[in-house]
Design a protein around this nucleic acid. Structure first.
Lengths: 142, 142
DNA sequence: CCATAAATGCAACATTGTTGCATTTAAGAT
DNA sequence: ATCTTAAATGCAACAATGTTGCATTTATGG
């Protein structure tokens, strides 16, 4: 995704936030990433440009998620991953893919993670989370 | 599930393990639980009877999973949960349900978590993990 | 009862994330 | 351009979950 600095600023401003260097950097990193990134990966990329505290990055990520500029993706390795959701139109109802070799997580655009299921008596269904496990193109090739 | 002490011993012995008090206790706790338990919940129940080190419980759980006497279930709260799999026949291919209020996780017996999905070019599918979110009977009622 | 490998307990460490609080700063007001 | 102030940041300490190294204890076969 190609995004100029100006439009990243605009995204933040439209959300009603102060435009700060940590926010610009984190959002830019997410927008440029081809897949969901962990806090660790984000911090590494951000710090490559300039120093930002880990706690600040956690808080920026929380803020981005709360303001729907990013998605938070769970995984079985107990580490949150984050995706940019610049368009805001990114429905939160698709499957995710997790490579069992490199651990990378990507959204499976065009899939639907919703289906009515027969639950035990008294249970109420709200939504569904589906993760497809396998090998990504790079790991399958190697 | 009703299980006598003798049969729990047999389960361990058949798996080729020494029969020790921590293993008996942990497996018994899992067999008696109506849903998947966290390490914390297991430790609390085991220690109610006698003192066992946390590390030992982690190692017993690892051992049970490796020997297919238990299943390990991931969740978005970054905490592993464990189910007894006494029959060994418990296919590892069903959906899970997670209550968004109490956090409890149960297996949805009779469901299948496998479906072929169209992946990006070069990707290879191995399996699928499906979690249905909602309210369990108790929380839906309250 | 003995020998021994396996299991346990303990302390220390690792990773991921959170909280409290003092300091700095973006952005509107002057 | 400067000032004011709430918002954002940085830092230190803490919390939860899980792992590793190693000395001690113990279940089991002989």
């Amino acid at each position: 995704m190609v995004t100029t600095r100006v439009s990243i600023e605009d995204l933040l401003r439209e959300a009603g936030a102060r435009v700060t260097r940590p926010r610009l950097s984190v959002l830019r990193v997410l927008l440029e990433a081809p897949r969901a990134l962990t806090h660790h990966e984000i911090a590494r990329r951000v710090r490559y440009a300039h120093r930002v505290d880990r706690v600040t990055i956690y808080r920026v990520l929380d803020w981005l998620v709360a303001h729907r500029l990013a998605h938070r993706v769970a995984s079985d390795d107990r580490v949150w991953r984050f995706n940019a959701a610049a368009e805001g139109a990114h429905a939160d109802d698709h499957m995710h893919f997790k490579c069992s070799r490199c651990g990378g997580i990507t959204c499976l655009e065009g899939t639907r993670a919703s289906r009515r299921v027969t639950l035990p008596k008294g249970y109420r269904q709200q939504r569904m989370e589906i993760t497809v496990k396998g090998l990504c193109a790079e790991c399958a090739f190697a």
